[in-house]
């Protein structure tokens, strides 16, 4: 719905092996500007490795990652820093535990921009307020719940106004209702701020509802790529399995879908 034809992120022939174990055999994926693309897959399919290659945390063995047409890493090349145009939301949040929530959010602004101290304070407080954490800026991560830590991490990822945000299992460890809330938050913030998102997740129901496109990673390849409607219609056995498991989940877990139709729940 928010897709444009020109991809902001284009991945071609990405390969990564650890010793003899090939995690990513050949990944090709395009992420149009302004869209949310979810990457699904079983545990151990290489979703997080793929995302960390995009973020520059893991150097791929081969392939090319283009961000807005500019190479951010080539085969066997150097570390591929994602730079200020990209942010990464870690599965475990990765908040600096020696800094308060406010300091965590202000950190990338203070260290990588030339903003004045007043502007940094204003933006960091604004980011926390936007996520309902205005009253918790002076709390340390250990003093916050898992859901609140996730929101602080999200505020930190968004405070630099990145063009693309990479989400690594953003709902890991959260209860069903909190998972629901996190996806809703991502969709709302995308609408407000206009960033592009790549979400690696196990949550098939939420991914289908929140995303413009879905990719299924299996055995080092993208096995399926398309919009949620195509995913629902696909006859691929693995897609079918995931879809069935999502359907079962939707029927049995209260609060996830309720009586709202699967498609478009977050986007109304």
């Amino acid at each position: 719905m928010k897709s444009s034809s020109r991809p902001l992120l284009k991945v071609s022939g990405l390969r990564k092996a650890f010793g003899d174990h090939v995690v990513l055999a050949r990944i090709d994926l395009s992420v149009p500007r302004g869209t949310i693309v979810s990457v699904l897959g079983r545990s151990g399919a290489g979703k997080s490795v793929f995302l960390k290659c995009l973020a520059g945390l893991i150097v791929p063995d081969a392939g090319q990652i283009l961000l807005d047409g500019r190479s951010s890493g080539t085969s066997g090349g150097q570390r591929t820093p994602s730079g200020p145009r990209a942010s990464f939301l870690f599965q475990g949040n990765a908040l600096l535990d020696s800094l308060t929530a406010f300091e965590n959010v202000a950190l990338p602004l203070a260290q990588t921009t030339s903003l004045s101290p007043d502007e940094i304070v204003s933006r960091a407080e604004g980011a926390l307020d936007r996520l309902g954490l205005g009253a918790f800026g002076r709390h340390y991560p250990s003093q916050l719940s898992g859901g609140m830590q996730k929101r602080v991490a999200l505020a930190r990822a968004l405070v630099t106004e990145p063009e693309i945000v990479l989400f690594d299992e953003p709902t890991a460890g959260l209860d069903p209702l909190s998972r629901n809330a996190v996806f809703e938050l991502i969709v709302r913030l995308r609408q407000d701020l206009g960033f592009t998102a790549v979400i690696v997740t196990h949550d098939v129901v939420e991914a289908l509802e929140a995303s413009d496109r879905v990719a299924l990673l299996d055995q080092g390849h993208i096995r399926f790529e398309g919009d949620p409607e195509s995913f629902m219609a696909s006859r691929d056995p693995m897609v079918s399995d995931l879809r069935d498991s999502a359907g079962a989940l939707a029927r049995h877990v209260a609060g996830i879908t309720g009586v709202t139709p699967l498609a478009g729940r977050f986007l109304t």
Binding site: A55, F88, F90, A94, L96, P108, Q111, T112
Partner: peptide
């Protein structure tokens, strides 16, 4: 900090972890 990816997080923010 290394195991909990805090050092990686600094890298993704464009911050030199060794300097910081």
């Amino acid at each position: 900090q290394r195991n909990s990816e805090q050092i990686d997080a600094l890298g993704t923010m464009g911050i030199n972890a060794l300097g910081f």
